Deep mutational scan, measured.
Amino acid sequence: NSLAEAKVLANRELDKYGVSDYYKNLINNAKTVEGVKALIDEILA
C-alpha cells in the first residue's frame, strides 16, 4: 500500500466513527504508512 492509499483508507475509517478534523489532519501529516496505522490504532482505541 502506498502512503496516499493508507491516508484515504484511514480517513474513511475515521468518518465511520465521526472523528473530528483534528485527527484527520494528524493522519494527513503522517510521513509513513506505519505512522498512519499507529495513529488509527491510537485514535480508535
Score class of each variant (00 low, 15 high):
41 D>R: 15
28 N>K: 08
45 A>C: 09
31 K>A: 12
35 G>H: 14
40 I>P: 00
33 V>T: 04
41 D>P: 03
11 N>M: 13
13 E>Q: 13
16 K>I: 06
13 E>I: 15
35 G>V: 13
16 K>N: 07
23 Y>T: 03
23 Y>N: 03
11 N>H: 14
21 D>A: 15
6 A>Y: 13
24 K>L: 05
27 I>N: 00
8 V>E: 15
14 L>T: 02
31 K>L: 13
43 I>E: 00
42 E>I: 13
35 G>R: 13
21 D>C: 13
33 V>P: 04
41 D>A: 14
20 S>I: 05
12 R>Q: 13
24 K>T: 05
44 L>Y: 05
2 S>M: 10
5 E>A: 12
34 E>M: 09
3 L>G: 00
7 K>S: 01
32 T>E: 02
29 N>T: 09
1 N>P: 13
6 A>R: 03
13 E>V: 15
9 L>K: 11
8 V>C: 06
21 D>L: 13
5 E>L: 14
4 A>N: 08
26 L>R: 09
26 L>C: 05
34 E>D: 08
14 L>Y: 02
35 G>Q: 14
11 N>A: 10
8 V>I: 14
24 K>E: 03
36 V>S: 00
30 A>C: 06
28 N>L: 11
23 Y>R: 02
33 V>K: 04
3 L>E: 01
43 I>F: 12
28 N>V: 06
36 V>P: 00
16 K>H: 06
28 N>C: 05
15 D>S: 12
21 D>H: 10
39 L>C: 03
45 A>Q: 12
36 V>N: 00
24 K>A: 05
10 A>D: 00
29 N>P: 00
11 N>D: 03
33 V>Y: 07
10 A>V: 02
42 E>P: 03
11 N>R: 12
33 V>F: 07
9 L>C: 08
12 R>P: 01
29 N>Y: 04
37 K>D: 03
38 A>Q: 11
39 L>H: 02
18 G>Y: 06
6 A>N: 03
15 D>K: 10
40 I>E: 02
43 I>R: 01
30 A>R: 03
23 Y>F: 11
2 S>D: 13
24 K>D: 01
39 L>G: 01
45 A>E: 07
32 T>Y: 02
6 A>G: 02
37 K>C: 04
10 A>P: 00
9 L>T: 07
32 T>I: 01
25 N>L: 12
15 D>P: 02
40 I>R: 09
25 N>E: 13
22 Y>E: 08
23 Y>K: 02
35 G>L: 13
16 K>Y: 06
8 V>D: 11
28 N>P: 01
39 L>D: 00
11 N>Q: 15
24 K>S: 04
21 D>Y: 12
6 A>I: 11
9 L>M: 13
10 A>C: 04
13 E>R: 10
34 E>F: 07
41 D>L: 15
40 I>W: 05
27 I>F: 02
17 Y>G: 02
13 E>Y: 15
36 V>F: 03
26 L>Q: 05
30 A>H: 02
40 I>Y: 11
5 E>K: 10
37 K>V: 06
3 L>F: 02
27 I>A: 01
5 E>Y: 13
36 V>T: 02
37 K>T: 07
27 I>E: 00
19 V>C: 11
9 L>R: 12
41 D>F: 13
22 Y>R: 07
12 R>A: 14
42 E>T: 11
20 S>L: 07
43 I>Y: 09
37 K>G: 04
40 I>F: 14
7 K>Q: 06
11 N>V: 14
14 L>G: 03
40 I>D: 00
18 G>D: 07
2 S>N: 10
38 A>H: 07
22 Y>H: 10
12 R>D: 04
4 A>P: 04
40 I>T: 07
45 A>G: 12
20 S>K: 05
27 I>T: 01
6 A>S: 06
7 K>V: 04
40 I>Q: 06
39 L>Q: 02
2 S>Q: 10
10 A>F: 03
21 D>K: 13
10 A>R: 01
7 K>A: 02
28 N>S: 08
11 N>L: 15
20 S>G: 11
21 D>T: 12
34 E>Y: 07
44 L>H: 07
5 E>N: 10
3 L>M: 02
18 G>H: 10
42 E>L: 13
15 D>L: 11
44 L>F: 07
40 I>A: 07
16 K>L: 08
6 A>Q: 06
42 E>F: 14
34 E>I: 05
32 T>F: 02
18 G>E: 06
19 V>S: 05
8 V>G: 06
43 I>G: 03
32 T>L: 02
16 K>R: 11
19 V>I: 14
38 A>C: 09
21 D>V: 11
32 T>N: 05
13 E>S: 07
16 K>S: 05
4 A>C: 06
31 K>G: 08
6 A>T: 06
17 Y>L: 14
39 L>R: 02
26 L>P: 01
3 L>R: 00
25 N>R: 12
27 I>L: 06
27 I>K: 00
18 G>R: 08
34 E>A: 12
43 I>Q: 01
24 K>C: 03
10 A>M: 02
13 E>H: 10
21 D>N: 12
34 E>Q: 09
16 K>E: 05
44 L>C: 03
44 L>E: 03
26 L>F: 05
39 L>W: 03
14 L>Q: 01
23 Y>G: 02
25 N>M: 13
29 N>V: 07
43 I>L: 07
20 S>N: 08
38 A>I: 10
12 R>I: 14
26 L>T: 03
31 K>N: 11
43 I>D: 00
21 D>G: 10
3 L>N: 00
23 Y>V: 05
4 A>E: 10
14 L>K: 01
18 G>C: 06
15 D>R: 09
16 K>T: 06
44 L>A: 05
15 D>E: 12
39 L>S: 01
20 S>H: 07
31 K>V: 12
6 A>L: 13
11 N>F: 15
23 Y>M: 06
1 N>E: 10
17 Y>E: 03
13 E>P: 01
9 L>G: 04
12 R>H: 06
22 Y>W: 11
30 A>N: 02
20 S>T: 10
11 N>Y: 15
28 N>Y: 12
32 T>W: 01
22 Y>G: 04
45 A>P: 05
24 K>P: 01
7 K>C: 03
43 I>W: 09
28 N>D: 09
2 S>R: 11
14 L>W: 02
19 V>L: 13
17 Y>C: 03
44 L>T: 06
25 N>G: 09
2 S>E: 13
25 N>C: 09
39 L>K: 02
22 Y>A: 08
17 Y>S: 04
37 K>P: 00
10 A>T: 01
12 R>K: 12
44 L>I: 10
36 V>K: 00
27 I>P: 00
16 K>P: 03
40 I>G: 01
12 R>V: 09
23 Y>S: 03
2 S>P: 12
23 Y>L: 04
20 S>Y: 05
3 L>I: 04
35 G>A: 15
12 R>C: 02
39 L>M: 06
28 N>I: 07
17 Y>R: 10
20 S>F: 07
41 D>K: 15
28 N>T: 07
45 A>V: 08
30 A>F: 02
31 K>I: 10
39 L>N: 01
20 S>E: 06
38 A>N: 06
21 D>R: 13
31 K>C: 04
18 G>W: 05
33 V>R: 04
40 I>K: 09
8 V>F: 13
27 I>D: 00
29 N>G: 10
32 T>A: 02
19 V>R: 06
26 L>M: 09
41 D>M: 15
16 K>A: 08
45 A>F: 13
5 E>V: 13
34 E>C: 07
20 S>A: 11
7 K>L: 06
19 V>P: 06
40 I>N: 01
37 K>S: 04
13 E>M: 15
2 S>K: 12
17 Y>H: 12
21 D>M: 13
17 Y>A: 09
38 A>E: 05
6 A>M: 12
38 A>G: 05
39 L>I: 13
34 E>L: 08
7 K>E: 01
11 N>K: 11
28 N>W: 15
7 K>G: 00
23 Y>D: 03
8 V>K: 14
1 N>W: 15
27 I>M: 03
35 G>F: 10
7 K>T: 02
8 V>L: 14
41 D>Y: 14
12 R>F: 10
44 L>Q: 05
4 A>F: 10
33 V>N: 03
1 N>D: 12
1 N>H: 12
22 Y>T: 07
44 L>P: 01
33 V>L: 11
30 A>W: 01
12 R>L: 13
27 I>R: 00
31 K>T: 15
15 D>C: 06
24 K>Y: 11
15 D>F: 09
42 E>N: 10
12 R>T: 07
20 S>C: 08
4 A>Q: 12
42 E>C: 14
30 A>S: 06
33 V>D: 02
8 V>M: 15
14 L>N: 02
10 A>L: 03
40 I>S: 03
44 L>W: 06
7 K>P: 00
44 L>V: 09
22 Y>S: 04
36 V>L: 12
33 V>A: 04
4 A>L: 08
41 D>W: 14
16 K>M: 07
29 N>C: 06
3 L>W: 01
25 N>D: 12
3 L>C: 03
5 E>M: 14
19 V>G: 10
26 L>H: 03
36 V>R: 00
24 K>H: 05
7 K>R: 04
17 Y>Q: 05
8 V>P: 00
41 D>T: 14
8 V>Q: 13
20 S>V: 04
42 E>G: 08
15 D>T: 12
8 V>R: 15
43 I>T: 02
1 N>I: 15
22 Y>D: 05
28 N>H: 08
19 V>M: 15
7 K>D: 01
25 N>T: 14
8 V>H: 11
21 D>Q: 14
3 L>H: 00
34 E>N: 05
1 N>R: 12
31 K>F: 10
7 K>N: 01
10 A>K: 01
19 V>N: 05
24 K>V: 05
18 G>F: 09
39 L>T: 03
